[in-house]
Nucleic acid binder design. Sequence first.
DNA 1: GCTAGCGGCTGACGCTGCGTCAACGGCAAC
DNA 2: GTTGCCGTTGACGCAGCGTCAGCCGCTAGC
Lengths: 252, 252
Amino acid sequence: MRTWSTAEVAKLAGVTARTLRHYDAVGLLEPAATGHGGIRRYGRAELLRLQQILLLRRLGLRLETIGDILDGGLDPVAALRHHADHLQAERDRIDRLAATVDATIRQLEGGGPMAPETWFDGLDAAQQAEFEAEARRRWGDEAVDAGDAAIKQMEPTERAAIPGRFEDLHRRLGALLASGEDPEAEAVQRIADEHYRFIARLWGTEPTAEAYRGLGELYTDDPAFTATYDRVAAGLARFLRAAMDHYAQANL
Amino acid sequence: MRTWSTAEVAKLAGVTARTLRHYDAVGLLEPAATGHGGIRRYGRAELLRLQQILLLRRLGLRLETIGDILDGGLDPVAALRHHADHLQAERDRIDRLAATVDATIRQLEGGGPMAPETWFDGLDAAQQAEFEAEARRRWGDEAVDAGDAAIKQMEPTERAAIPGRFEDLHRRLGALLASGEDPEAEAVQRIADEHYRFIARLWGTEPTAEAYRGLGELYTDDPAFTATYDRVAAGLARFLRAAMDHYAQANL
DNA sequence: GCTAGCGGCTGACGCTGCGTCAACGGCAAC
DNA sequence: GTTGCCGTTGACGCAGCGTCAGCCGCTAGC
């Protein structure tokens, strides 16, 4: 027995016959011979190649890449290094996702830090969770926990007023934007000052210039925030960010 | 301005118009009204729904699941918990993949532990790397490093003889299998004893019953090994594993 | 000589979430 | 009338096969 049929190879290698036909179709593994009605026959060389294919496949490489490697057109080490980078990135992405999902679950259960009723107007539970996860990434756990503690210490009436306070600031900023004011204009900067002090209250500490600018970046980088602001007035997110940048540079 | 066009919504939410049409097509987000040549118009409610869709999407949920949640047919917390489990599994999978890829790279570079020329006959570099990764998972880093050290201390001639020694054992086992012997037969168990002592030499220590049985499991569980053995003789992997099981039970 | 059954074959659709043409329509500015 | 912009509806493409559907050839049993 020097050659094997599709079913035999499939059993030996632990794949389905369909897979073998697929590999034939894409030119990854062609049978040693086909005859008599298209019947495939595989030889020892094909078995070996299949082994290597399956190994590389289990490393997560794409079939096309595997083909390039086995046909000598691609350096295996380079390809694997590239793949390792890709895996690393994937893992990081999943880690971030998982953190955000966990935060969202905590938010929805209502028990976690940053209770829903206290935060940004216009952000629902999932958005707040995302913001929290992002905040922990940007400013660290301590900063976020400190902010949470600061909010928890407020009077209930003050807490309840937070969303309204934001709305107020945003509306007034939107009006200035609509009237063509520059982000660095004094009228705008006065509101930025109010905004800064308000954020400081919420955070339980006065943000550094860097932290405050980072918050501004968040407004424009995160589509959820951007959309929230832009519903108040088109371009408000960028306008606010510019105002915050200038404020930080001038006063912090 | 109380309604928005496709392009406006797209800009506000940071998605493409194609995406909005897609969401309409799959029934995830239908415009408030369509008229005059199919022109879509979105209202405030649709904007809010879109926000929630995008948030849940960024958590990695599938569109269908998102639809179920937003239509009230699915508990968000339960869905997210389920999703978190899924993410966890994915991360673990990627971690294992990355470990195997790293091991493969080390093997291919030839510098790492378990140099290619010393290990199993029939396993190429990638396979050996996979085996190494699997071994570290099953028996821990110390065991694998100890084995590596043991092999490094051998005389070069003895090292070179390893593959041939395996081949010899496998051929003799294959002959006994072909002649219909039982895995527990004395003739088979004598070879199992040789096999055990040989593995002990390679590992630098005498495997426990559990470790030896675990090695047998690997032979049948891992298609790469199974195929390698079954090329020597059909069913050899299972035969060897049964012999190892019995040997461990009777002698260890 | 008929039929059932086993294996093998070739299409072709399905899955996921859109990106990317292609082909066409309507409306405003020039 | 034309150009250009924004809108529309198909339809293919991607990755890697799973899963029919429909057909052919050989063998065994009746």
